[in-house]
């Protein structure tokens, strides 16, 4: 406080690097972040092991069973993504954030970069740990899959990436809706509930539902069959197409959220 600021302002301008550093400090300085991520990973592995232990059909898609915990686990990263945005509105932090970074789209871009990286790491770790944990705990007579078998490495890896994409979808929804309860409601409805109805009513669209993409496109190593009558199954997307569709959802939510963030009063 001994000099006036005009003499000390450095050259250049704040940019994504500085804003990402801010978002990283914000993310890691909340205990709830770490709890949520630990519970996500532990839940994914635990459910996977439970399903794996109960797998009797050795000719089935054991990898898909091992990744069964991903579907509920995704909910937590999605909600965490929502909260990263909505908790700023709930607490009033958003005003401090916007005063520090008035170029608003940078804020959402930085949040997406930081949170996307964290959930990608956690998601991949959860997915691979679940895979190996299930392999070690299968009952006798059911052979553990290996990453070298066709489609297995792909299934485990793209499933891990789903955490990141659902998390980013949540972040985008949080930016659009701004209220925690409403945004979580839309996320759960969009990802989980609607899929159940559409899955029953319109097969053609069902394969584009996020949760069915994760369960039937990303985490599978062989074509999904529905009971004895394979023909009644929707035409599920391939793993890569499924990943692309999920990424598209996240990008759309973030783009709309960023556009609204830049336009609206805070």
């Amino acid at each position: 406080m001994t000099t006036t600021a005009e003499t000390r302002v450095p050259s250049g301008r704040y940019g994504l690097a500085q804003v990402a550093r801010m978002e990283w400090i914000k993310l890691r300085s909340l205990r709830s972040t770490w709890w949520t991520l630990v519970v996500t990973a532990a839940g994914t592995v635990g459910i996977g092991v439970a399903v794996g232990v109960n797998t009797r059909n050795a000719s089935g898609d054991v990898t898909n069973n091992a990744l069964a915990g991903v579907v509920p686990g995704l909910l937590l990263t999605g909600v965490l993504g929502v909260l990263i945005m909505t908790s700023e509105y709930a607490s009033g932090t958003i005003r401090a954030t916007l005063a520090a970074v008035p170029r608003r789209p940078l804020i959402l871009a930085a949040k997406a970069a930081v949170f996307g990286a964290v959930t990608l790491v956690v998601g991949e770790a959860a997915s691979f740990i679940a895979f190996f944990a299930v392999g070690a705990t299968l009952r006798d007579g059911v052979a553990a899959p290996t990453l070298g078998q066709p489609g297995v490495l792909r299934a485990v890896a793209v499933t891990g990436a789903a955490y990141c994409l659902i998390g980013l979808l949540g972040l985008g929804l949080g930016a659009i809706i701004r209220h925690t309860a409403a945004a979580v409601g839309v996320l759960v409805a969009g990802v989980y509930v609607v899929a159940q109805f559409i899955g029953i009513m319109a097969h053609g669209v069902a394969s584009y539902m996020p949760i069915l993409i994760v369960a039937n496109s990303l985490s599978t190593t062989m074509p999904v069959t529905c009971g004895t009558d394979g023909a009644s199954c929707p035409d599920f997307l391939s793993a890569w197409a499924g990943l692309g569709v999920l990424a598209l959802y996240a990008v759309i939510a973030l783009a709309v959220g960023g556009w609204l963030l830049a336009r609206r009063d805070a």
Partner: peptide, 12 residues
């Protein structure tokens, strides 16, 4: 401290 550290980081 974390609140201020985050704001500080945004403006180097």
């Amino acid at each position: 401290r974390s609140h201020l550290a985050a704001l500080a980081a945004s403006n180097a």
